[in-house]
């Protein structure tokens, strides 16, 4: 993580007063990356039952940054797929801090297709700083693997509920993030670029990350307003890391509620709704 010194500027002062007691976007960035924040494997134990992990993309390898398999949530059977940042340093390194490589995205797609064959709804759990930026990832088609998932997810004939639990890092998040319902924890973030990355490009200085975080509209609240997400899952007062059980209960009931809302919709209708949802994303003018 980039170390960020606070840099008082007119804008950040203005922003912190505007946001008042709810905290600035930067405060939320810090909570979303909190070392004790629950990660996918915590939710697997607290929210899901009878998880049957499945491995490998069948082409190259098994990417531990992405975990997936059959699971039960309440009385529903689902295919669960998500990024796992890991719990301790060794685990985090093994899982590459949740930064998946092409084989991770291809495993995810393989499991999604499996879900389609089993007629199971899909739950994806998003928590990644981004797709892994490395030589081997580029060599094996990082861009193609994400592009393929995004395109195939538009066609999947089963309901998809995606939950952003921590960091929704750009294309790496979207690679498992196209769905019928997008939920987000109240202290999670979802962004086209990391605040540090944006600051270093547009402010020419990564220490302007707090300003960039504000400008990018990356909080759950901002994204609900922009109609990018459908629902905010409220975290306990001190953040998700302060009370795992309470957080898990809220996540479980939100997923169940949304799975239920998609249950009796015909495949054609579901795919039309999904296409309409994404066709409506973004704002542009038509009077040029």
């Amino acid at each position: 993580m980039t170390k960020v010194k606070s840099k008082p500027s007119e804008k950040s002062v203005k922003n912190s007063t505007e946001k008042g007691k709810n905290g600035t976007a930067w405060d939320i960035v810090k909570i979303s990356r909190h070392p004790n924040r629950p990660v996918l494997q915590d939710y697997i134990s607290l929210v899901f039952e009878n998880f049957i992990p499945l491995h490998g993309d069948r082409y190259f390898a098994d990417d531990p940054a992405i975990v997936g398999g059959f699971a039960k949530i309440g009385d529903k059977k689902v295919m669960l797929i998500g990024q796992n940042k890991g719990k301790n340093t060794t685990d985090q390194i093994t899982r590459n801090f949740g930064m998946a490589k092409p084989e991770g995205y291809r495993k995810a797609l393989r499991l999604m297709k499996l879900a389609e064959r089993f007629n199971l709804p899909i739950v994806t759990v998003i928590d990644t700083p981004g797709a892994f930026p490395g030589i081997e990832a580029e060599e094996r088609g990082q861009a193609e693997s994400i592009a393929k998932n995004i395109t195939e997810m538009a066609k999947l004939e089963v309901p998809i509920v995606a939950v952003v639990i921590g960091e929704g890092g750009s294309g790496g998040a979207l690679g498992i993030g196209v769905g019928d319902k997008i939920l987000m924890l109240s202290n999670a973030i979802y962004s086209v670029i990391s605040p540090e990355g944006c600051a270093s490009i547009l402010w020419r200085d990564a220490t302007f990350a707090p300003e960039a975080a504000e400008a990018l509209n990356i909080t759950a609240k901002a994204l609900l307003k922009l109609e990018v997400i459908d629902e905010i899952i409220e975290e306990p007062k001190g953040g998700a890391h302060s009370d795992y059980d309470k957080t898990a209960t809220a996540v479980k009931s939100a997923i169940l509620k949304n799975l239920k809302s998609l249950e009796n919709i015909s495949v054609d209708k579901l795919l039309d709704m999904r296409a309409d949802k994404y066709a409506a994303m973004g704002k542009f003018s038509t009077d040029n």
């Binding site: 592009a147 995004i150 395109t151 997810m153 538009a154 750009s170 294309g171 979207l174 993030g177 196209v178 979802y190 962004s191 086209v192 670029i193 944006c198 490009i201 547009l202 400008a215 990018l216 509209n217 990356i218 994204l223 922009l226 990018v228 999904r274 296409a275 994404y278 066709a279 994303m281 973004g282 704002k283």
Partner: peptide, 17 residues
Amino acid sequence: RMQEGVLSLMQMAKTCS
């Protein structure tokens, strides 16, 4: 396009649909 935040990210899903 960073200046449109996540709305620009969502164009990836929109175009691919």
